[in-house]
Amino acid sequence: MRWGPRNGARGRSPGGVAALLVLADGRFPAGGHAHSGGAEAAVAAGRIHDAASLEAFCRGRLHTAGLTAAGLAAAAAAGLDPLALDDAADARTPSPALRGTARRLGRQLMRAARATWPSPELDALAAARPRGAHQPVVLGLTARAAALGPPDAAYAAGYEAVSGPATAAVRLLSLDPFDATAVLARLAPELDQVAARAADAARRALDEGPGALPAASAPLLDIAAEQHATWSVRLFAS
Protein backbone atom coordinates (compact mmCIF):
# COMPACT_ATOMS: atom_id res chain seq x y z
CA MET A 1 0.00 0.00 0.00
CA ARG A 2 2.92 2.37 0.66
CA TRP A 3 4.30 4.32 -2.21
CA GLY A 4 7.95 4.16 -3.07
CA PRO A 5 9.74 7.36 -4.02
CA ARG A 6 10.23 5.99 -7.56
CA ASN A 7 6.50 6.40 -8.08
CA GLY A 8 6.83 10.11 -7.62
CA ALA A 9 5.06 10.11 -4.29
CA ARG A 10 6.54 11.47 -1.14
CA GLY A 11 7.07 9.07 1.68
CA ARG A 12 5.31 9.30 4.95
CA SER A 13 7.09 11.17 7.65
CA PRO A 14 7.39 9.48 11.03
CA GLY A 15 4.02 9.77 12.72
CA GLY A 16 2.28 10.18 9.36
CA VAL A 17 -0.61 8.01 10.44
CA ALA A 18 -1.51 10.59 13.05
CA ALA A 19 -1.70 13.27 10.35
CA LEU A 20 -4.29 11.11 8.59
CA LEU A 21 -6.37 11.06 11.76
CA VAL A 22 -6.27 14.84 11.88
CA LEU A 23 -7.26 15.15 8.21
CA ALA A 24 -10.05 12.56 8.33
CA ASP A 25 -11.51 13.77 11.63
CA GLY A 26 -15.11 14.85 11.14
CA ARG A 27 -14.28 17.92 13.24
CA PHE A 28 -11.60 19.09 10.82
CA PRO A 29 -12.93 22.60 10.16
CA ALA A 30 -13.43 22.51 6.40
CA GLY A 31 -17.15 23.18 6.07
CA GLY A 32 -18.34 19.60 5.67
CA HIS A 33 -20.75 19.77 8.60
CA ALA A 34 -23.24 21.79 6.55
CA HIS A 35 -23.47 19.13 3.83
CA SER A 36 -25.34 15.83 3.89
CA GLY A 37 -23.79 14.13 0.87
CA GLY A 38 -27.22 13.63 -0.64
CA ALA A 39 -28.72 12.20 2.54
CA GLU A 40 -31.22 15.02 3.04
CA ALA A 41 -32.75 14.47 -0.41
CA ALA A 42 -32.74 10.70 0.10
CA VAL A 43 -34.44 11.03 3.49
CA ALA A 44 -37.13 13.26 2.00
CA ALA A 45 -37.71 10.75 -0.80
CA GLY A 46 -38.01 7.93 1.74
CA ARG A 47 -34.91 6.15 0.44
CA ILE A 48 -33.18 6.53 3.82
CA HIS A 49 -35.47 5.82 6.75
CA ASP A 50 -33.52 3.55 9.11
CA ALA A 51 -30.06 2.12 9.68
CA ALA A 52 -30.40 -0.55 6.98
CA SER A 53 -31.43 1.93 4.30
CA LEU A 54 -28.69 4.31 5.45
CA GLU A 55 -26.20 1.47 4.98
CA ALA A 56 -27.50 0.77 1.46
CA PHE A 57 -27.24 4.46 0.58
CA CYS A 58 -23.72 4.78 1.97
CA ARG A 59 -22.60 1.58 0.22
CA GLY A 60 -23.86 2.95 -3.09
CA ARG A 61 -22.21 6.30 -2.54
CA LEU A 62 -18.92 4.70 -1.48
CA HIS A 63 -18.61 2.61 -4.65
CA THR A 64 -19.62 5.45 -7.00
CA ALA A 65 -19.00 9.06 -5.96
CA GLY A 66 -16.71 7.85 -3.16
CA LEU A 67 -14.49 5.79 -5.47
CA THR A 68 -14.26 8.63 -7.98
CA ALA A 69 -13.36 11.14 -5.25
CA ALA A 70 -10.82 8.71 -3.77
CA GLY A 71 -9.12 8.29 -7.17
CA LEU A 72 -8.83 12.04 -7.66
CA ALA A 73 -7.53 12.55 -4.13
CA ALA A 74 -4.97 9.76 -4.47
CA ALA A 75 -3.77 11.16 -7.80
CA ALA A 76 -3.36 14.65 -6.33
CA ALA A 77 -1.42 13.16 -3.42
CA ALA A 78 0.75 11.27 -5.91
CA GLY A 79 1.77 14.51 -7.55
CA LEU A 80 -0.35 14.62 -10.72
CA ASP A 81 -1.05 18.14 -11.99
CA PRO A 82 -3.91 19.40 -9.79
CA LEU A 83 -5.32 21.58 -12.57
CA ALA A 84 -5.56 18.59 -14.90
CA LEU A 85 -7.22 16.69 -12.05
CA ASP A 86 -9.62 19.57 -11.51
CA ASP A 87 -10.69 19.27 -15.15
CA ALA A 88 -10.97 15.51 -14.69
CA ALA A 89 -13.21 16.13 -11.66
CA ASP A 90 -15.45 18.41 -13.71
CA ALA A 91 -15.74 15.73 -16.36
CA ARG A 92 -16.76 13.23 -13.68
CA THR A 93 -19.37 15.54 -12.10
CA PRO A 94 -22.31 15.99 -14.48
CA SER A 95 -24.56 17.81 -11.98
CA PRO A 96 -23.95 21.59 -11.94
CA ALA A 97 -25.20 21.71 -8.34
CA LEU A 98 -22.64 19.11 -7.27
CA ARG A 99 -19.87 20.89 -9.19
CA GLY A 100 -20.73 24.03 -7.27
CA THR A 101 -20.76 22.12 -3.99
CA ALA A 102 -17.42 20.45 -4.76
CA ARG A 103 -15.74 23.77 -5.55
CA ARG A 104 -17.25 25.49 -2.50
CA LEU A 105 -16.06 22.70 -0.23
CA GLY A 106 -12.71 22.70 -2.02
CA ARG A 107 -12.28 26.38 -1.28
CA GLN A 108 -13.21 25.89 2.37
CA LEU A 109 -10.86 22.93 2.72
CA MET A 110 -8.11 24.98 1.06
CA ARG A 111 -8.41 27.62 3.77
CA ALA A 112 -8.15 25.05 6.55
CA ALA A 113 -5.36 23.16 4.78
CA ARG A 114 -3.15 26.20 4.21
CA ALA A 115 -3.49 27.14 7.87
CA THR A 116 -2.80 23.57 8.99
CA TRP A 117 -0.12 22.28 6.60
CA PRO A 118 1.29 25.31 4.74
CA SER A 119 2.71 24.33 1.36
CA PRO A 120 3.70 26.10 -1.90
CA GLU A 121 1.64 23.56 -3.86
CA LEU A 122 -1.50 24.48 -1.95
CA ASP A 123 -0.72 28.18 -2.46
CA ALA A 124 -0.31 27.61 -6.19
CA LEU A 125 -3.61 25.78 -6.54
CA ALA A 126 -5.40 28.43 -4.46
CA ALA A 127 -4.01 31.13 -6.75
CA ALA A 128 -4.99 29.23 -9.89
CA ARG A 129 -8.51 28.43 -8.64
CA PRO A 130 -9.52 31.31 -6.33
CA ARG A 131 -13.18 30.23 -6.43
CA GLY A 132 -12.17 26.76 -5.33
CA ALA A 133 -10.89 23.58 -6.97
CA HIS A 134 -12.87 20.35 -6.63
CA GLN A 135 -12.73 19.19 -3.03
CA PRO A 136 -11.18 15.74 -3.67
CA VAL A 137 -8.29 17.40 -5.55
CA VAL A 138 -7.69 19.81 -2.68
CA LEU A 139 -8.00 16.90 -0.24
CA GLY A 140 -5.31 14.96 -2.09
CA LEU A 141 -3.00 17.94 -2.23
CA THR A 142 -3.61 18.54 1.47
CA ALA A 143 -2.64 14.94 2.20
CA ARG A 144 0.54 15.53 0.19
CA ALA A 145 1.26 18.68 2.19
CA ALA A 146 0.80 16.63 5.36
CA ALA A 147 3.39 14.12 4.06
CA LEU A 148 0.72 11.48 3.63
CA GLY A 149 0.67 9.08 0.70
CA PRO A 150 -1.91 8.48 -2.06
CA PRO A 151 -3.57 5.56 -0.24
CA ASP A 152 -4.07 7.82 2.79
CA ALA A 153 -5.71 10.46 0.60
CA ALA A 154 -7.94 7.78 -0.90
CA TYR A 155 -8.95 6.64 2.57
CA ALA A 156 -9.79 10.18 3.65
CA ALA A 157 -11.93 10.80 0.55
CA GLY A 158 -13.67 7.45 0.76
CA TYR A 159 -14.40 7.79 4.45
CA GLU A 160 -15.80 11.26 3.94
CA ALA A 161 -18.14 9.89 1.26
CA VAL A 162 -19.89 7.76 3.88
CA SER A 163 -19.33 9.58 7.17
CA GLY A 164 -21.04 12.76 5.91
CA PRO A 165 -24.37 11.07 5.08
CA ALA A 166 -24.22 8.99 8.27
CA THR A 167 -23.83 12.08 10.47
CA ALA A 168 -26.54 13.89 8.54
CA ALA A 169 -28.94 10.96 8.92
CA VAL A 170 -28.52 11.13 12.68
CA ARG A 171 -29.62 14.76 12.61
CA LEU A 172 -32.37 14.31 10.01
CA LEU A 173 -34.00 11.13 11.33
CA SER A 174 -32.98 11.29 14.99
CA LEU A 175 -31.40 7.95 14.16
CA ASP A 176 -29.64 6.21 17.04
CA PRO A 177 -26.03 7.44 16.71
CA PHE A 178 -24.72 4.00 17.71
CA ASP A 179 -26.58 2.46 14.78
CA ALA A 180 -25.18 5.05 12.38
CA THR A 181 -21.64 4.45 13.59
CA ALA A 182 -22.14 0.70 13.30
CA VAL A 183 -23.07 1.26 9.65
CA LEU A 184 -19.69 2.94 9.11
CA ALA A 185 -17.91 0.10 10.88
CA ARG A 186 -19.64 -2.51 8.69
CA LEU A 187 -18.57 -0.58 5.58
CA ALA A 188 -14.92 -0.47 6.68
CA PRO A 189 -13.80 -3.57 4.71
CA GLU A 190 -15.36 -2.14 1.56
CA LEU A 191 -13.68 1.20 2.22
CA ASP A 192 -10.38 -0.70 2.33
CA GLN A 193 -11.14 -2.11 -1.13
CA VAL A 194 -12.21 1.25 -2.54
CA ALA A 195 -9.11 2.99 -1.20
CA ALA A 196 -6.86 0.26 -2.66
CA ARG A 197 -8.57 0.49 -6.04
CA ALA A 198 -8.31 4.27 -6.06
CA ALA A 199 -4.63 4.22 -5.07
CA ASP A 200 -3.91 1.62 -7.75
CA ALA A 201 -5.62 3.76 -10.38
CA ALA A 202 -3.68 6.81 -9.22
CA ARG A 203 -0.44 4.86 -9.69
CA ARG A 204 -1.44 4.07 -13.26
CA ALA A 205 -2.52 7.66 -13.82
CA LEU A 206 1.07 8.77 -13.19
CA ASP A 207 1.94 7.14 -16.55
CA GLU A 208 -1.39 7.16 -18.36
CA GLY A 209 -2.87 10.47 -17.21
CA PRO A 210 -6.14 11.24 -15.39
CA GLY A 211 -8.09 9.06 -17.85
CA ALA A 212 -6.91 6.06 -15.81
CA LEU A 213 -8.82 7.29 -12.76
CA PRO A 214 -12.21 5.85 -11.78
CA ALA A 215 -15.25 7.60 -13.27
CA ALA A 216 -18.06 5.86 -11.42
CA SER A 217 -21.21 7.89 -10.93
CA ALA A 218 -24.61 7.55 -9.28
CA PRO A 219 -27.29 9.13 -11.50
CA LEU A 220 -29.85 9.21 -8.69
CA LEU A 221 -27.43 11.19 -6.48
CA ASP A 222 -26.93 13.64 -9.37
CA ILE A 223 -30.65 14.05 -10.06
CA ALA A 224 -31.55 14.36 -6.37
CA ALA A 225 -28.79 16.94 -5.87
CA GLU A 226 -30.25 19.08 -8.66
CA GLN A 227 -33.69 18.90 -7.03
CA HIS A 228 -32.34 19.54 -3.54
CA ALA A 229 -30.58 22.70 -4.74
CA THR A 230 -33.99 24.21 -5.55
CA TRP A 231 -35.60 23.57 -2.14
CA SER A 232 -36.33 26.76 -0.21
CA VAL A 233 -36.44 25.02 3.18
CA ARG A 234 -33.59 22.65 3.94
CA LEU A 235 -31.19 21.88 6.76
CA PHE A 236 -28.14 21.08 4.63
CA ALA A 237 -26.46 22.98 1.82
CA SER A 238 -26.25 19.79 -0.25
Binding site: R27, P29, A30, G31, G32, H33, A34, H35, S36, R104, R107, Q108, L109, R111, A112, A168, R171, L172, R234, L235, F236, A237
Partner: peptide, 19 residues
Protein backbone atom coordinates in the same frame (compact mmCIF):
# COMPACT_ATOMS: atom_id res chain seq x y z
CA UNK B 1 -26.30 27.36 5.31
CA UNK B 2 -25.45 25.60 8.52
CA UNK B 3 -26.42 21.92 8.35
CA UNK B 4 -28.84 22.22 11.27
CA UNK B 5 -26.13 23.60 13.55
CA UNK B 6 -25.65 27.38 13.41
CA UNK B 7 -23.46 27.26 16.51
CA UNK B 8 -21.04 24.96 14.66
CA UNK B 9 -20.85 27.41 11.75
CA UNK B 10 -19.98 30.33 14.04
CA UNK B 11 -17.67 28.53 16.43
CA UNK B 12 -16.24 25.10 15.55
CA UNK B 13 -16.04 25.33 11.77
CA UNK B 14 -16.18 28.90 10.55
CA UNK B 15 -15.15 28.15 6.94
CA UNK B 16 -18.46 29.03 5.30
CA UNK B 17 -18.77 32.29 7.24
CA UNK B 18 -15.21 33.38 6.43
CA UNK B 19 -15.90 32.64 2.78
Amino acid sequence: ETGACPHTAIRDDISANLE
